[in-house]
């Protein structure tokens, strides 16, 4: 196999880890609260700026800055739910999507106001690992491993704890769970914080690889939605598999054509898939 192609495949797998993490957070919110946070990737952008601000501007060590950013974005997630989603939870679902679209504009331009439109880098040089002729960026490898770890922890939380069980139950049946003594408001708030926390974790992993700028959300926001739907709502495994399919299309497709065309391919696949299999790869037909 061509060494460059192999590198594209490996990079695709590594990218898939972070995309899976993002899709998981979105899937959680989509599945449990039944809203689409169009501004989800912008929350990641907020986390990246938080780390940039803490680490590069104020010299807070990275191992402290990263958890702080995660908590910060988790709180943002709760605020999004409290201030924007919960007042219109009863209205048409599309209104909630559009309200978070307003948030998208707000966060983008607020970031521009605070930091300007420049590309910012935290200025950390991480080593490149050499395996044979293969060059792998350490930042990507770490992002992949931490993303996997984060997903396992979340999976254990959802499966093994009482709150986790309540969250899964709400996702399955909204009406009955209220009768079983689960407070949906509390579950929604916890889910939003979890979703935000996952975005925060993703931001900590992405800031090591990419420059942060106000519009970075647009470069991986749409693909995250596609992965989330492609995997099937509420199906964590489906989202996981879909993330790796999409990341391979982007990475290997980008190797053969151009990065834009590989995204075009990924989006076209999504459109076709939603017609052929609207419940997603691993979703159950309702």
């Amino acid at each position: 196999m061509d060494i460059f192609l192999l590198e594209a495949v490996v990079n695709g797998i590594l990218l898939g880890g972070v995309l899976a993490l993002l899709a998981l957070g979105l899937n959680l919110i989509f599945g449990v609260i039944d809203v689409v946070w169009i501004a989800y990737a912008e929350l990641v952008m907020c986390g990246m700026y938080a780390i940039y601000w803490l680490y590069a501007v104020h010299g807070v060590p990275l191992f402290l800055a990263a958890p702080m950013a995660i908590v910060f974005v988790a709180i943002l997630g709760m605020l999004v739910h409290k201030l924007i989603i919960s007042p219109i939870l009863g209205s048409a679902p599309i209104n909630q999507l559009l309200a978070t679209g307003g948030l998208l504009f707000f966060l983008q331009s607020f970031a521009t106001l605070l930091f300007g439109a420049d590309f910012r880098n935290i200025g950390l040089r991480l080593p490149i690992i050499e395996i044979g002729d293969l060059f792998i960026s350490f930042a990507r490898l770490m992002a992949f491993s931490v993303a996997l770890l984060g997903m396992v922890v979340l999976w254990l939380f959802l499966k093994r704890t009482y709150v986790g069980t309540a969250i899964r139950a709400i996702a399955q049946d909204r009406e009955i769970m209220v009768l079983m003594g689960v407070d949906p408001k509390r579950v929604y708030l916890i889910t939003s914080a979890l979703g935000g926390g996952l975005a925060g974790l993703a931001s900590a992993l992405l800031v090591l690889q990419y420059d942060v700028h106000p519009f970075i959300g647009l470069s991986f926001g749409p693909i995250t939605f596609m992965i989330c739907v492609l995997g099937g709502l509420g199906s964590m495994i489906g989202g996981f598999v879909a993330a790796f399919i999409m990341s391979q299309i982007i990475s290997v497709g980008g190797f053969y054509t151009s990065i834009e065309l590989s995204y075009v391919l990924a989006f076209l696949l999504f459109i076709v898939m939603i017609f052929v299999r609207p419940q997603g790869l691993f979703g159950v037909k309702s």
């Binding site: 309200a99 679209g101 307003g102 998208l104 504009f105 983008q108 331009s109 607020f110 521009t112 106001l113």
Partner: peptide, 14 residues
Amino acid sequence: FIGAAPTIYGIMLI
């Protein structure tokens, strides 16, 4: 203040 207009715009939309 590049970005001031869309900031206000975004809040208005919400």
